[in-house]
C-alpha cells in the first residue's frame, strides 16, 4: 500500500493548463514521457532522435491543447501525433538516403537497456546486449502492420481499445494482428526465452 494520492485525470490537467497553470502540462509530460520515448525509440532506433522527436510531439500537443477533444483519450491523441511525426521522420531519413539497416554511425548515445536479469559480469552484459539487439531486430523484421501495433502495445503501453481508436481498426482486428505479430516474435526470440 502506498501513500500516493490518486493521479489526477488527464482531462483535469489539460483544463488546468488551459487556465494558465503550465506546471500541470509538466505533469502530463512526466506521465507519458517514458511510453512516448520508448515508442519512438522502437520505431526510429535512435535514442537521441527519439528524445528530440518526443520533445517536438509534446510541443505540438501543447500548442494545439485547446483543440483537444475530451471525447477521446489524451493518450490516443498524443500517440496519433507521435505516429505522424515518426512517419514523417522516417520519410525524411529515406530522402536523405541514410541506411535503415544499422543505427547511425558514431551515435554512442543508444540508451540503457533495462534487463531484469540477474546476470552479472562480462558474459552477462554481453548476453544482455545480444538480447537487446535480438529484440530490436525481431521487431524490425515484422511487417509494418504488425510492428506498429506491437510497439504501440508493448512500448507505448496503449490498451487494445486505444490502439483500435488510434488506428481506426475494429478491436478484433487489433487483437488478431497483435497475436500474429507476437507469434512471429516468439519464433524469432525463442533462443532468448530460455534464459
Amino acid at each position: 500500500m502506498t501513500n500516493e494520492s490518486p493521479q489526477k485525470p488527464d482531462v483535469d490537467l489539460i483544463a488546468a493548463a488551459l487556465d494558465g497553470d503550465q506546471e500541470r502540462f509538466g505533469e502530463l509530460v512526466r506521465r507519458y514521457q517514458g511510453r512516448l520515448v520508448n515508442y519512438l525509440y522502437r520505431l526510429l532506433r535512435d535514442y537521441g532522435e527519439a528524445h528530440d522527436l518526443a520533445q517536438e510531439v509534446f510541443l505540438k500537443v501543447y500548442q494545439a491543447l485547446d483543440r483537444y477533444n475530451p471525447k477521446y483519450k489524451f493518450s490516443t491523441w498524443l500517440f496519433r501525433v507521435a505516429q505522424n511525426a515518426a512517419i514523417d521522420q522516417i520519410r525524411k531519413r529515406r530522402l536523405q538516403l541514410v541506411s535503415m539497416d544499422r543505427p547511425k554511425a558514431g551515435n554512442e548515445d543508444q540508451g540503457t537497456w533495462e534487463f531484469p536479469s540477474g546476470e552479472r559480469g562480462p558474459y552477462g552484459e554481453l548476453r544482455n546486449i545480444e538480447r537487446g539487439v535480438a529484440i530490436q531486430e525481431s521487431i524490425e523484421r515484422l511487417p509494418w502492420e504488425y510492428r506498429e501495433l506491437i510497439v504501440l502495445r508493448h512500448y507505448g503501453e496503449l490498451s487494445y481499445e486505444e490502439i483500435a481508436t488510434l488506428k481506426g481498426m475494429p478491436l478484433g482486428t487489433v487483437k488478431n494482428k497483435l497475436f500474429r505479430g507476437r507469434q512471429m516474435l516468439k519464433e524469432r526470440l525463442s533462443d532468448f526465452m530460455t534464459d
Partner: peptide, 8 residues
C-alpha cells in the same frame, strides 16, 4: 523479454 527492452 519484450518489456525488458525498454530504454530509460
Amino acid at each position: 523479454l519484450l518489456s525488458s527492452g525498454r530504454v530509460e
